[in-house]
Amino acid sequence: MKPRHLLPGLSILNFQNCGEFRHIQKWQSRSFYALLLAVLLMPNSAIAIDITKQMHRPLSVSRDERTYRDYADSLLRIGREQLAAGFAAKTVESGQEALDIYRILGDVNSQGLTYDLLAGAYLQLGNLKDAEDALRRRVGIARDNKDFEAQIFALNNLGTLLLQKGEAKAAGQTIQDALAIARNLENIEGQGLSLSNLGLVYTRLGNYNQAIKVCETALIFRRQTNDVIGEANTLNNLGDAYLAAGDYDNTIGAYGAAMRLAKVHFDRGNQLRAIDGLVIAHSAVKRYERAIELLDQRLAIAQFLNNPVEELKYFASAGQMYEKIGKYTQARNLYQQALTLTRKLDDKKQEAFVLDRLTNLPNK
């Protein structure tokens, strides 16, 4: 099984977008962010739980090695289904049990795949410490096995995680290591991924011209492999660089291209990310009506996905937009809906933010 890139949609806001746990991503592709970003169909939650109960029966000591291996492989498969369905805690249980068996069997390659899975689950849970540990172990296994292709994608995963932690220089060095391997192997996919992630690093470091340059080069490699989701992700990275540089025309062009590609290919994570960037850019040049239209598209996607976290982002952002243009009644209504969602989600940080906006909203 090929290695995966866990963070293909990583933006400067979440692990991709993670935050945003993402929805039906190209999980089997090595261009993931990822978190993440899965071709596995999201299973019915009741079915996923029932399967988990069946698979977590005690092992019989009479089972031979083949049976143990089949059982561990089943746990790994179920873990991926659980992660796609949003059951990250269950994924950790399945992954840890599979890992124990692979260790007993001495199956190092499968241990590496399991660490990929565990990293994704820990990221979905917001546990960056254990996610980093899993990714470093994944890198170590790839190096021990002299699996250079696996190293490319494992190092990119680790680099994007370090970037999310705010360690931009360490992230840049890690991704540069991946790029060097990809170039030595003449691996087109690996070069596109590494350059795209370096664009994020340079943006974070404030080197916007370099960020734009490497993202444009990354697009060439992405298009050579027909990696449409990877191309949309790189376009979003390019949009981030232009936005940080204050070049709003090119910002809108890059995010607009990303949004169109993502929409056609049902890549909701990149579509939402592009919309968020476009809202900021249009607002900056006072195109408020267009920004509000885009926010309405964001709400439609969030409701289609039945994702309250993404709905919350809409209500909070739309409230700020209406507040900015002086429509305080609409802003107050949106903030109230956002407040209801923060309490439903038990999101104390966002609850405090929304309460602050409501408190300071003019009574007009």
Rank of each mutant, 00 (worst) to 15 (best):
T342N: 09
E65D: 11
Q96V: 12
L135E: 12
S283H: 10
L235F: 01
A232G: 12
M1E: 09
L113M: 04
A98M: 05
E189K: 08
I275F: 04
S196Y: 03
Y248T: 13
T174I: 05
G19T: 06
L205Q: 15
N109H: 07
I252H: 03
I292V: 09
E132P: 01
M55T: 08
H282W: 10
E289Y: 04
P58D: 15
K327H: 10
P58M: 15
A38Y: 01
D100K: 14
A316P: 02
Q25K: 06
L312D: 08
S110N: 15
F353G: 01
A302I: 02
L163C: 04
C215W: 12
G269N: 09
L59M: 15
I181F: 03
Y328C: 10
Y255W: 06
F221G: 05
L117E: 10
A48D: 12
D276P: 00
G106M: 10
R143K: 11
Q320H: 08
K349D: 07
Q16W: 02
Y115G: 06
Y115V: 14
K349H: 05
K344R: 13
K165W: 07
F315W: 15
Q28T: 14
E20Y: 03
V139W: 01
L305N: 06
P362Q: 12
K53T: 07
W27A: 12
F266R: 15
N333C: 04
K344H: 12
T225H: 04
N109P: 02
L36A: 09
R57K: 15
L195N: 00
G319E: 10
L272G: 04
M55P: 01
A218C: 07
F32P: 00
I152C: 05
L99D: 08
F153H: 04
A245D: 09
R204V: 11
G120R: 14
L235Y: 02
R57T: 14
A257N: 09
C215I: 13
I229H: 13
K327L: 14
K90P: 01
N209C: 02
N157F: 00
E93Y: 04
A180H: 09
R260P: 01
N44I: 14
V108F: 07
V201P: 02
L37M: 10
L200W: 03
S283K: 08
A34C: 05
S194M: 14
I188Y: 00
D100P: 01
E323C: 03
T329R: 12
N187C: 09
G172C: 10
A331D: 08
T234D: 02
D177E: 15
A34H: 03
A244S: 11
A281T: 00
L40D: 12
F221D: 09
L294F: 03
